[in-house]
Design a protein around this nucleic acid. Structure first.
Length: 119
DNA sequence: ACATTGACGGGCC
DNA sequence: TGGCCCGCCAATG
């Protein structure tokens, strides 16, 4: 993922950021990757972290919770295929609309799991 | 510097 | 299949 991959440097939260924003880069990297997940497919928190080569599943989860709004956050699910708690209705609604393969309210990971490179 | 807290994940009953 | 426990990485107080 090249440095300038963010044509649209999305607005960071309006929350005050006094200063050093060192790992905002990681936040951007995560959001950027999520934007690349095709409709109908999903990625797991852990896969995203692994893909980017840093952080961990939990960290990605936290980032999605706080900065995921602008991107297709519903395409990020846990390894079991369960969608984001707290927004389940909305997430499932969107996934269905995209034709994502679901099995009893859970994403069928065998079909929907996506990885950036070859595909 | 230390403890707590997550939109997590894997291993083990 | 499902729940519990414990490790994980950073952010926060």
């Amino acid at each position: 993922m090249p440095p300038g991959a963010f044509s649209t440097r999305r607005a960071r939260d309006s929350r005050v950021r006094s200063l050093p924003v060192a790992d905002d880069d990681f936040v951007e990297a995560v959001l950027s990757l999520v934007e690349q997940i095709p409709a109908g497919r999903v990625m797991t928190y852990g896969a995203i972290a692994a893909c980017l080569g840093r952080g961990g599943a939990r960290h990605v989860g936290t980032i999605m919770a706080r900065h995921g709004g602008p991107v297709p956050w519903h395409r990020v699910v846990n390894v079991a295929g369960r969608v984001a708690p707290g927004c389940q209705e909305e997430a499932l609604r969107r996934l269905r609309a995209e034709g994502t393969t679901l099995r009893g309210g859970v994403v069928d990971m065998r079909v929907a799991l996506w990885w950036p490179v070859p595909d």
